[in-house]
Design a protein around this nucleic acid. Structure first.
Lengths: 333, 333
DNA sequence: GAGATCTGAGTAAACGCTCTCTCGCTCTCT
DNA sequence: AGAGAGCGAGAGAGCGTTTACTCAGATCTC
């Protein structure tokens, strides 16, 4: 209740008997200050429990020591391991990370810009943000790193996982098991990752696969719901956009009396935490989420220092076979 | 590349031919301003793409229109639906939400205080934060709401889900199925929720249950690993702290050749998204995460307005029976 | 030992905004 | 017609920091 006034740098200066400039110097670790004085200042700081006002620091110095993370959906677990890793890096470099969700598509840029007066850089984890908005950001010279999205017309550092190669490997695995007719349960059409994965699946025609795409969007519910339509194409395997959709599909198949993988194989993507624990354990692709987050921070940090981070190649993801795939029903069995 | 200077309120004022004070008034929606002038200002604002500097606004007015969310683990999915709902409320009231993770226990208060110069209030989603730190926060008069934690010695508004009653209901369900010897796979010992759930399980002795507790911590891996020890007590049912631990346990049981629920029943808590889609679908307790988040915002918003939010009763959670529980093996079968 | 060079600390001007005060103008009332 | 009230807009003082500058005093050079 006692609405005690926040202690300011002035209070510390008075207590230590020095000027505010000196306090500022001590706190910023400047070397041009008498050790004994520095000690006095530090003691005063502790005693008064002084904490610098971030808003004022940001205003005066123009650097906020914090970065914004913009993502479309806070409840999507895919992002969490990534930003967790990023956060470790940020904290290590004494940066704060501010996560912001936006909901309305089209509103992204506005959100980014809005948060920009409190942060020094941006991490964009949006598969859907319009390329124009990204270009705008790039043009403004805002340090920004694009995560899991490759946009060739945009001059921004990006870090992403290779979706194509491992998906092709997965297809090869299915082909080797005798599958031919397969359905790709798509993710969000505008997402780069979805395009890449579907590109790989189509490419797999050369391996003998005969893929068709069914619209969906990478959630459990969507996977569940898209399954009936998928079955209309009489596939022997379902290639889901991600693990969640795969789980939904398997659940629906079970309801229909079809078992996985005996009657129909199902694959996922991402290797979310539960993927190996469910029954059947998911054949999927392990996305290096931690590495992705770390790499993203390294590049953002370089941008913040004014460097131009070196563009890295796509991070490799590895195919892992578990129990949700088996020989195609009806092939040489 | 063109490092163009950010446009300030001064630029807008010049462009519109008015004083900065007037621009400020127009932007803050003050009514004491000539409509024609307001229109001029608004036009200038648009043309210059002016965006107020949040740091400066915060410094000058003392209000930041943003709240901090402090949570211990960004990758824990339990929080996401909650803060997603909170965010909806916050955005609706034109507040920004800044999510911050801390890692080191004991460091929480420092993190809170640190973020305090950029936010107006705090949402604490920490089951583990020390009561002393909470008291400190309360004493400083910082608008704060405690989520999913009830701490009677702390004078702070809190909103939480009832853990006890539904857990008791779940125990009743197990007792009715003939279970007697059961193991509680614990969550983090210092978590309020864990204490409540275990309290309910112990209470269920009156229903004929004979519970023992096995240490664990509410992750899939921990549930998986604690299962062997749990089996040492020869239970007919496992009551997991939450769904994740339940999933881990079921996976381990399967590995050991035990099937759920025929050989052993398993229950969860929370009803995470996958709970109903896995095989067997989890008997669990549906936690009203969205309601929780909404309620948290309502209370925080009241605190921000200087009101003392009315303490609400615990939010009800409902028991839901699915396929992971069945008659106790060896009972009248 | 006098002038030049360093050091280290203080002074004060930003940073971009809000908000109180002040002031000039238009109305209204007597 | 003159005074008081009312209203709208400008001036300017902060808000809490950082960061040129400035300027003593100490150290050095010849």
């Amino acid at each position: 209740m006692k609405e005690r006034r926040r202690v300011t740098i002035r209070d510390v200066a008075d207590a230590a008997g020095v000027s505010v400039a000196t306090v500022s110097r001590v706190l910023s670790g400047s070397l041009t200050v008498n050790p004994e004085m520095a000690e006095r200042v530090r003691r005063a700081t502790d005693e008064l429990e002084y904490r610098p006002n971030g808003a004022a620091q940001g205003l005066a110095s123009g650097v906020h020591r914090s970065v914004g993370v913009v993502l479309p959906d806070l409840s999507n677990p895919y992002f969490h391991d990534i930003i967790k890793a990023t956060n470790v890096g940020a904290v290590g470099d004494r940066y704060r990370m501010l996560v912001t969700e936006w909901r309305e598509p089209g509103e992204e840029l506005s959100v980014c810009l809005d948060v920009l007066s409190r942060v020094d850089g941006l991490l964009v984890l949006s598969a859907r943000m319009e390329a124009d908005s990204l270009r705008d950001l790039a043009a403004r010279g805002v340090p920004t790193v694009l995560v899991n999205r490759v946009e060739l017309g945009v001059d921004l550092p990006m870090v992403a996982v290779d979706n194509f190669s491992p998906m092709l490997e997965l297809c090869q695995h299915l082909a080797a098991l005798g599958h031919r007719r397969v359905v790709y349960l798509a993710g969000s059409p505008s997402a780069w990752q979805n395009r890449e994965r579907w590109r790989a699946v189509r490419q797999a025609r050369i391996l003998g696969l005969d893929p068709v795409m069914v619209a969906s969007d990478g959630t459990i519910e969507a996977g569940y719901e898209a399954t009936d339509e998928a079955l209309g194409h009489e596939p022997t395997a379902l290639i889901a956009f991600n693990d969640l959709a795969a789980l939904g599909a398997i659940a629906r198949l079970r309801e229909l009396g079809l078992s996985t993988p005996e009657d129909i194989s199902v694959t996922g993507f991402d290797d979310v935490a539960v993927a190996r624990y469910v029954d059947p354990a998911l054949t999927t692709i392990v996305s290096p989420k931690t590495a992705l987050g770390e790499q993203a921070w390294v590049m953002l940090e370089a941008s913040l220092r004014g460097e131009r981070p070196e563009q890295q190649p796509l991070l490799p993801a590895t195919f892992v076979q578990r129990a949700s795939t088996g020989p195609a029903k009806g092939s040489r069995a």
